[in-house]
Design a protein around this nucleic acid. Structure first.
Lengths: 362, 362
DNA sequence: CTGTTAGCGCATTCAC
DNA sequence: GTGAATGCGCTAACAG
């Protein structure tokens, strides 16, 4: 264990005072170029690292961060993100952090616009953004950039923006994985139907929420099947998810028209709705795959009404995003890697009980 | 954000001095029963929590911890555990921690015994144990207990011991999951053979290393198949893994005798060996499942020679175990939950690129 | 522009 | 048994 050098050591080594080293480390105040060069050389060579503890202890100033994302209720995707953020705030409760939340309606662009417009005025030290509407988000980013307020993304990255970090999932890869899973797992023997076909349900009249996401997933999904030479086996259906009666009617109608369907994939998280319909109509023999480990999906998997979901670690995203903000604000460390891709989990009944919130464990 | 109370606050509230509060918090030195009661009451009511940063800063004393586990080479399971430990040591480099490593030969009980016997004499402040031989491990635990040295387990828990924490995987659940996966994914259409059978390969003449683990996995695996009413479809084979020529001969012999095999499950991590044999003999149509995301298996999955592995987060185990030790040693916080079950991951080609070491991300 | 210095909250040592 | 005093490495304010 090589003893860590202290700021005082660095100061001595480079013939300046601790204050100067501090100014260089934090890029604040003016430093003569020559002095800066000398100190930076020592810094480099010695591989100096902050002692985050003393740093946090000595920090007088507090930071205010604003979190903005779609509103949600308990057990939903965005709510899990919020849990991750909460854990991080809790883990770092020794740092003077104040966190404000600005939720918007993910189905209403104007709600998003109104909320986003109010954010720069709050003058936060940093913003955590869960984006849904790319254009509105881009406007927010520009406005933050003008005021020099750093921001991070969770869930999705907005092309052309310049966040301090982003924690997102490769939705195309998710779609490909979904394709592979549907291909591999569609009704196992002995119940398999002979002329195997695969259903792909799309919500008709989708709210704006994540239609973008679903498109990427679908592209990955169809990509997998076309590479497997099975494109022709995919049967698409528009399902009006939010109208229970119509929804059931169209699911049953579809299955009637396509009796060889062995499995169905959804590019969204409302697998529970379809699972209930299949279950009510005694069609459990059909494999059902969806996204996100929501409370509803969790229950369906436990009850054997759904085969698997693909999960993308929302809590970890929220947790890491806050951690990233803290690193940036307090320790002036930018991540070497800006864009972090989250792990993509396959969850079935057998491993569901062990899919806890990792962060709470640590 | 409720302002955190400080020790000074607590002292003032209970009419004593900071020193006394500290003595109570850390259970050291003598405190008058009456004083103790009064302070503890205030502590309770105010929900006081350490400021881990100042606590770490003020800590003069350093701690020495000993890590003991099977030796391994780069890319193997135990090596990944070591990486997690390294990350933790790195993340907490601001704390005065010294870490010594004692590796033993997992195939030689005497090696283990010799190493374990040397550990108590080193008088570490805590020990991290990766067990293989239950009896030897139990002896170590007893000896540590006598000296009041706390210990944590990774990978496996030893029944009857009393660790500060343990980070392990439910091997029976892993086996069940393996069963489910084999059932669901065995050769998808259109290459499926008609009378589907499943292969279960066991290493013949196993070294002692984790035979215990493999038994539990096999129990879970056969449990799944018997519940699915498919017990009769499992065909077992003893495969001499470590003898390349014999191994290939017995694999090919088995497949010749059982032409309806659609998929093979291994209860250990050497899927790469079997994958190469299948690949060399152009039998890629057969699904192959194994354990652990070793470097070898990783490559096989990427190359399409293996279908999936079940992975159990060795890095996270190592990381969490060290974190747990630190919490215990520095902050005197025992985990409420002693036994932590790790998440069980399913890794296929499509999500492999995103299975990084989570901890490095945070 | 640069050096000096007073705390931050806690652990520890030393008087009482 | 208990309280006061010191210092951990750093930040930030102030004095040059």
């Amino acid at each position: 264990m090589a003893k860590q050098l202290t700021i005082a050591d660095i100061a001595k080594l480079s013939g300046v005072s601790a204050g100067t080293v501090d100014r260089i480390l934090h890029n604040r105040g003016k430093v003569a170029p020559a002095t800066r060069a000398a100190v930076e050389k020592v810094l480099q060579e010695s591989g100096y690292r902050f002692n985050i503890h003393t740093s946090a202890v000595a920090l007088k100033k507090g930071y205010r961060i604003t979190v903005t994302m779609p509103s949600s209720v308990d057990g939903e995707y965005w709510n899990q993100m919020l849990n991750g953020i909460g854990h991080a705030l809790d883990e770092f409760s020794d740092i003077k952090l104040e966190c404000g939340f600005c939720f918007y309606n993910p189905f209403d662009m104007y709600s998003c616009r109104t909320v986003f417009e109010s954010i720069p005025a709050q003058e936060p030290d940093a913003v955590l953004i869960g984006p849904v509407f790319p254009d509105e988000t881009m406007k927010l980013c520009n406005s933050l950039k003008n005021r020099n307020i750093p921001y991070v993304f969770v869930d999705e990255d907005i092309p052309g923006s310049s966040p301090v970090a982003s924690y997102s999932t490769d939705q195309t890869a998710c779609g490909r994985l979904m394709g592979k899973l549907l291909h591999l797992t569609s009704t196992p023997p002995p119940f398999r139907k002979l002329n195997i076909e695969y259903g792909l349900f799309q919500p008709s009249a989708t709210g704006a929420e994540s239609s973008y996401k679903q498109e990427k997933r679908e592209a990955g999904f169809t990509g997998y099947f076309s590479e497997a030479g099975l494109s022709g086996k995919i049967k698409k259906a528009d399902i009006p998810l939010l109208n229970p009666h119509e929804c059931e009617k169209s699911v049953l109608g579809f299955l009637h028209d396509h009796p060889d369907i062995n499995g169905i994939a959804l590019m969204h998280s409302r697998g529970d709705i379809i699972a209930d319909i299949l279950n009510r109509n005694r069609m459990e023999g059909i494999t059902l795959l969806a996204f996100d480990l929501t409370a509803g999906n969790r229950k369906c998997i436990m009850d054997g009404k759904m085969t698997a979901v693909i999960s993308q670690h929302p809590e970890m995203q929220g947790f890491s995003a806050v951690k990233s903000i803290i690193r940036y604000l307090l320790y002036k460390q930018c991540d070497k890697k800006i864009s972090h891709r989250m792990p993509i989990d396959i969850v079935v009944a057998e491993n569901l009980p062990y899919c806890r919130n990792y962060l709470a464990e640590l």
